[in-house]
Design a protein around this nucleic acid. Sequence first.
DNA 1: AGCACGCCGACT
DNA 2: GTCGGCGTGCTC
Length: 779
Amino acid sequence: MKIAKVIVDVPLMQTDKPFSYVIPSEMEELIERGMRVHVPFGSGNRLVQGIVIGFEDEELEPSVNLKEVSELLDVEPVLTDEQLWLADEMRHSVFSYKISCLKAMLPNLLNSNYDKLLKSTDGTSVKWSQLTEAEKISSAKAVRLGQLSVEYLAKSKENRKTEKFLSIPDIEKLAEFEIEKRAKKRLELKYFLLRLQEEKIAVKSLNFSSQIIKFFVEHDLVKIEEVEISRTKEKFEAVENDSAKILNFEQNAAYEKIIASSDKPFLLEGITGSGKTEVYLQTIDHFLKLGKTAIMLVPEISLTPQITNRFIARFGDKVAIMHSGLSDGEKYDEWRKIKSGKAQVVVGARSAIFAPVENLGIIIIDEEHETSYKQDSSPRYHARDIALLRAKWHGARLVLGSATPSLETRARAMRGVYELLLLTKRANEAAILPEIKIIDMRSEISDQSANFSHSLLTKIKEKIDKDEQVILMLNRRGYSSFVMCRECGFVVDCPNCDISLTLHMDTRTLNCHYCGHVEGIPQTCPNCHSRKIRYYGSGTQKVEEELREIMPEARVLRMDVDTTRTKNAHEKILEKFGNHEADILLGTQMIAKGLDFPNVTLVGVINADTGLNLPDFRASERSFELLMQVAGRAGRADKKGEVFIQTFNPHHYAIEMTKAQDYEKFYEMEMRFRRELSYPPYYFTVQVLVSHQDEEVAIQKSYEIAQLLKQNLTEKAKILGPTARPIARTHNLYHYQILVKYRFEEELESALNQVLELTQLRDNKNLRVLIDSEPQNFV
DNA sequence: AGCACGCCGACT
DNA sequence: GTCGGCGTGCTC
């Protein structure tokens, strides 16, 4: 008797282990590791989805009565052996359920309901769900033999995009077929088809009515087939081809080293404009030529057409793009394209690291310092860790690229764990580094404006007069707009969370960013009933208003969460700005990344400080990275760029090092500080977050947990807290956190698992415990 | 999560 | 006497 070990889709601690099911004999030769199944689960035998992770020949515990697998959901495995292994490896660090790890690797569509369409070579097709059990088995065998092809079908129609194509099975027959002279349209189509060069033509591109075409179909003169088309296809057609550029000496040295050895990962550290992307493109090309595949990770926020088009231009339809803007159906299309081997280059955000490519040659993580590579919900994996595992499995290269590497990465490069490759020159040698000016807002507050210094305003005017463009960044971290009464100072707070509500001008509502609570904007102060209640939209909106008042002649484009909510809004704004339909692009962080507008000669940072004083040991690092990055937007072509940074902390080292554009010095200073305070990269960190409705319970339990950790860890581990979270209450829960700093703790994993076990006790029913290894955000 | 088993209160 | 309250515990 053959038995399947199945991980069921019931994300709970008690069910987080393989369950054994008997494989019905007719399924025996079809079932494989990595396939999805339906199995009866629990006393009610409700059907749940599960993933087969292995087999046993004998049942290990004959005492338990095994049930049978009800249904095989796949004809070929949706998860590879490598992915099953990745899930096992991941689990040591993410403290999540195995099923969650597995599901993170599948497109959403496969995690929900869908059907399969079996297509035979003669064009007929049948839905899997309509087959009898016996037919299912014979069909599956036919798929194996290549007699049938299979297509997954979402239950909801809009997930699939097809187009009808026409082909001519027998041109002779068509030529000989007589059509009456008075049937002018039919004759027209006949001659059109006879002159046709292409093998297939899209029906919609023909200028003939469906009636006419139907006549040809009925006489077997033409064949119509419905072809699923990739939703992203249009994009490929619009991009012009591009070929490799000549590398400069440094770029070439980096290229040679990367292709030469896979001993250790590379850190490609190159200043803005040094041509990292060209190195990526050429190394990828090298591996493609060897018949291998590539994964290129880019932060979600920079996954703009400007970036993706460079890959499409170079590699054409070998590229699959994966980002969160795609619908489930589109993501699924791309996944299939990769899985089938049609795409060999995957460009995508964090989750693209799981792309089902085989024969991986190289993984590149651009802007490796970006925190978005760490998922901030379960499973809390870091794409870099997954990349290391995959590179190991495939013997592939791993390249981490950045102008401002994270301290962790750079420190590893210094210790020789990674090989450091430096690009110190701009690829376009004419381009010079921008000049950065720090404006001390303590002495320069303009009487005209609350946000602009006199010198920045003057400079903006000067640039606009010269017909050059300006980018203005408002640092929104730790700062959002709220409604306040001018009379009594009352601020509207969220009833569930200890935080003020954020104003959304587009929907005219007050929203809580934590629990999603929404309410209307009050007309009078709820506290003192004064009418002097004032508000502004997003910070950017307020700045925009000010700008319009001071400089009515300037054309301003605003880019923030409010203006980019709709699909493609992002792209449209950038396109407009690129066409010089505006003089000023005003936005939040999202404008700092990867944009390249040659006509931009001034970058202004309105408020450099907001991120600086956050209660997060990475606050300086983040600010420095962001400022360096936004500074890089100025003067990328032959025009010289200028950068104005407004700050109330002009002597903060993150600001001073930005002015000097000196990563090395910043690295040194920041490392010293991290060493003194025992933070990464000198120590590893893990955070335990304890939440409960009752604050007393939350406090008490978090002390218990801290105690448990102390008992199980060595004296060298440093346990901070428990302390209340910066926002102590959200969703009506009180949050307390414990931070463990450690170097070598063999018992850490088991101690943390013990903490999780605690939550299983009945008196801890309402206690929520989250474990986050190497947390990236403390606010 | 679901679902059943189980052991106490107010009802035809 | 019994219907049903939801506390407790298990799921191959």
